[in-house]
Design a protein around this nucleic acid. Sequence first.
DNA 1: AATGATTTGTTCATGTCAAGAACAATTACC
DNA 2: GGTAATTGTTCTTGACATGAACAAATCATT
Lengths: 173, 173
Amino acid sequence: MNRPRRAPTRETATDAGPPIKTTARRAAKQRAEVNVDGLTSVAGYLIRQAQLWVFEDFVETLAPLSLRPAQYSMLVVIRDNAGLSQMALAEVLGIGRSGIIPPLDYLESRGLLQRSPTSDRRTHALHLTAQGTKLLAEADKLVHQHEQRLMEKVGPRGYQQLLRVLAVFGTRS
Amino acid sequence: MNRPRRAPTRETATDAGPPIKTTARRAAKQRAEVNVDGLTSVAGYLIRQAQLWVFEDFVETLAPLSLRPAQYSMLVVIRDNAGLSQMALAEVLGIGRSGIIPPLDYLESRGLLQRSPTSDRRTHALHLTAQGTKLLAEADKLVHQHEQRLMEKVGPRGYQQLLRVLAVFGTRS
DNA sequence: AATGATTTGTTCATGTCAAGAACAATTACC
DNA sequence: GGTAATTGTTCTTGACATGAACAAATCATT
């Protein structure tokens, strides 16, 4: 599709006679005055926007430890369920079993967890190392700060309502 | 280490085989035993899980109209802000200005919107066509059904709390 | 009016990420 | 015992956001 990069000489807009605005005002107005009421009543849109904000702050929060959000969640689940299999971890996180392998490889290469053999020689038992436990404790502090920022954003009351309402999605069933 | 590496040897496809019987009893059992309390207190995790549920239902909701969620949101903003530029649309949706071009091309190719020239010949004014307006009305009905399903999931009270709390993220400023 | 800077739409290269197929080793089931 | 299912792994594919680079047009400053 070799379309011209930018339609060079389109037909002129002489017939429309659009309202002429000063450019300074146009830039400001177009940014500030776009009506999004049609979207703010759709919960899916709001949840997506909230997720973008939270995710961005979460990433920055854990960046000093070189941990990605998904990796943090893996460490937490492994800490609270020492010895679980990769399959169980994948299902609980809602990821395909092939999707957790790269992050697990990464975490293992950093010495934060280990894959131990079990009686069922197909599976690996996942455990945190001492180093992993220590780093996760650090991460928990940072995550707590992140939660504080979210609480400032939505208010203490809104924060608790959020946790209560969204608890339905916490357990995948 | 001494663990045998199970590396597949790429070979031609064997017979696909019959449909697999779901013996996921074990998996379901193991999943039920996994403790995820360490994550359900993190709002970011809950929001992500909620977003996954909502997004999946949203996609299925709009599938009969061959509309993706992002495309629906574009149509809504264009309807409520007829004539806005691609830059303004991109900013309001939180996407890069290069990211909206493929979906806009798609929507335009379906005859749902049109890019009209303006006095500023760099910009395009986005408008819904009659067909686009009609399809969006259909989509709105389906989205309303989607919102009903979400309300059943979190309860009427939880639904309204959700909208109220997340309203903070609705306007990007 | 001239000219350099900025804006807009577009293309392209890249990186990330999830989903799924295929496969080896192992175990479960009948 | 033999067939089916499970687990971990690799690889391929496709969607999608990101950012650079670029042409056309407009703005800003003199």
